[in-house]
Design a protein around this nucleic acid. Structure first.
Lengths: 238, 238
DNA sequence: ATGTAAATCAATAGTAAATCAATTTATCTA
DNA sequence: TAGATAAATTGATTTACTATTGATTTACAT
């Protein structure tokens, strides 16, 4: 770690704690995982053990870590607000990538299949949002998302947070606590192939997602078509 | 048990308890069954009895086991949730389904890509196993699995347990503790389409899996081609 | 005054192995 | 069949060793 250029920076141990905070938020370390031992981690980060320990102590105070003397440092939970990408599973071909999204359209929709998936009566309307998905600013997938129109009858494109899940939490009064993905493979609709620059009717993988709220109601249904030449759906299990 | 490479691993007794947890979940031991005696089980798992006992104690605290002094360790109930097959994620179109497999061939193989995925040198040979996958006795997918030839140079089809992971644990000296799935979409090879009764070159979803052992080494690489008309890959997250 | 670094030593936890106690199960005997 | 005995099995404790974090001190720089 540099000794110069530190004039107006935050203390090193704060920087380190934020770095680790981001790592946990990104899912590189999952709840229950044990971090590398302090000596090792300090070496890897290029700081003294004492400094690392200060950072770890802060993370423990923030409730992210559990430090057990004689045993190790264990991830307790993912950070609250930062767990935006908790449910995002597209990665670049080389792994990782920073996700972003761009809304193409917002429409009121009466798609029967979506209503059925969301378990709403036929007379209830839905919002349908079409978005482009990027990894490291590269277009990789298209998605179509449905949720209840009643949550906000006056929804405007500019209101939407880039993270819809964050939007739900902040603007509506629920948050997404679990999702179920079903990976299929079928020919994509025209608007998808057009946007991705593929020939019409291309058969491509499709993620079919249902999302449940904290109150265990289905609140979102979505389709994601991703180009396997540009990204992959990754699932890690243990 | 190695002393190295334990950097990111949980304590051994936790790993053992998780392993046994999975075994119970998988139904290898049913409620009411008595486990092998501690001395035997410890030897088979390659750990000290005291370590095993810690793991058993944890399972008892979790309510999965009943330990009777002078008698034995009895399975009390299966773990909650539907995580019966922790690492198996194909389900019928209506959900669930009982998995089974049928080995078609076992060959010594020199596939470069597989070697690369497993991180073994080019001069090391691999076993390549082709299997048919069933859900409720209905053929749904084909899979091709590679692992190190050196684990058992004299492998015979009849030796293979239907659960390869169980085979690894019982016959080789490791077990699978985590996997990474990558879902792709490409035209399937001829042997796959033939077996599934599809036209040659059909584009279909493909699961590309790497499996890590308890010692954090990649021990298996596999492809699974599944027919989206008969089953789906399901991932549940929370 | 505060942050960083480095070096101590202390305290706790994990692994392994051994011993004996307590309990259950099986076996033998009258 | 009943009772005594032996064998099998888990329970609890101890010891030894190692790994890991906790806490303190000292030094130095800003």
């Amino acid at each position: 770690m540099e000794k110069k250029n530190r004039a107006k920076q935050l203390p090193l141990f704060i920087q380190i704690s934020e770095l680790l905070h981001r790592e946990i938020a990104a899912g590189h370390w999952l709840p229950g995982d044990r971090l590398p031992i302090e000596a090792e981690l300090a070496t890897k980060l290029g700081v003294a053990v004492g400094t690392l320990r200060k950072a770890l102590k802060k993370l423990e105070e923030d409730g992210l870590l559990e430090r057990k003397q004689g045993s190790g440092n264990y991830v307790k939970r993912a950070p609250d607000g930062r767990a935006i990408y908790q449910f995002f599973h597209l990665e670049t071909l080389t792994g990782g990538g920073i996700p972003s999204a761009n809304t193409l359209s917002i429409e009121v929709d009466n798609n029967e299949f979506a209503k059925q998936q969301l378990g709403v009566p036929e007379d209830q309307q839905l919002w349908c949002i079409k978005r482009a998905r990027y990894l490291n600013r590269e277009l990789v997938a298209m998605e179509q998302i449905w949720f209840k129109h009643a949550h906000d009858p006056n929804l405007k494109p500019e209101d939407l947070h880039e993270s819809l899940y964050l939007h739900y939490r902040e603007q509506f009064s629920f948050w997404i606590s679990r999702v179920e993905d079903e990976i299929d493979c079928d020919s994509a609709p025209t608007w998808v192939t057009q946007q991705l620059g593929l020939t019409e009717g291309t058969v491509m993988p499709q993620v079919h997602r249902r999302s449940w709220s904290n109150e265990n109601t289905i609140e979102e249904f979505s389709f994601t078509w991703y180009d396997p030449k540009r990204c992959r759906y990754i699932a890690r299990w243990h």
